[in-house]
């Protein structure tokens, strides 16, 4: 929790100071264009929403992720996204004797990019992917649950120079779980809703 707070604080300070200094900005920025690639490593602060098993039985650690995007046009890009979330089980009677669970998502995404000025951008992102919930049971056998995930949310990025930037964002995500359960548990195990705050750095090519 502390590290994500530090990242947010640092990002906000950088953004603020850069905006103040923007008046005297002498860097010549190349606008986004076709063929440009950007890499966004990130840290995510996740909160499970609703009455599902993830909110009820787990504590979520900070997620780590990476997006790799390819610009089709100065206002559009597509890409892939990886996200890993480690968890701690708090109430095993709600989910069975599980010791720990790692949630790994891989998917594709697309975004519309709005440029406020030569440094500040807003990305409106939506994506779809597959998620695996990898469990360690208490007697040592591993197993997994699978899900289809969709996500959407804005991301504000600030370019420090032509090749490097920072970003802040939020995201709402829904996992459609493929777990077979009795009708009494369908709501509980059927879906997972996650609210995510994201912060990271952005590497941009040419």
């Amino acid at each position: 929790m502390r590290s994500i707070f530090r990242v947010f604080t640092l990002s906000l300070l950088c953004t603020y100071s850069s905006i103040i200094a923007q008046e005297q900005d002498s860097i010549e920025f190349f606008p986004h264009h076709f063929n440009r690639i950007q890499l966004d490593p990130e840290l995510s602060l996740l909160t499970a929403l609703g009455d599902g098993f993830l909110k009820d039985a787990y504590d979520l650690d900070i997620g780590t992720g990476l997006s790799a995007d390819f610009y089709l046009h100065k206002n559009w890009y597509v890409g892939t996204r990886f996200l890993n979330i480690n968890t701690r089980v708090e109430k095993s009677e709600k989910i069975g004797d599980i010791q720990s669970t790692r949630i790994f998502t891989f998917g594709v995404q697309g975004a519309y990019v709005h440029q406020f000025n030569k440094r500040l951008y807003l990305d409106l992102i939506a994506g779809i992917g597959t998620t695996g919930y990898y469990h360690d049971s208490k007697f040592g056998t591993n197993f997994r649950d699978s899900a289809t995930s969709i996500w959407a949310g804005p991301k504000i990025s600030y370019r420090i120079n032509n090749f490097f930037g920072i970003f802040l964002g939020s995201e709402i995500r829904r996992d459609f779980m493929n777990i077979a359960v009795s009708p009494q548990l369908e709501d509980y195990f059927g879906n997972v809703n996650l609210l995510t705050l994201r912060a990271g750095v952005r590497f941009i090519t040419h």
Partner: peptide, 13 residues
């Protein structure tokens, strides 16, 4: 050789 495995994508109430 491990005869027992936990079933994926399933829970019992």
């Amino acid at each position: 050789c491990t005869p027992v495995s936990i079933e994926n994508n399933k829970r019992i109430l």
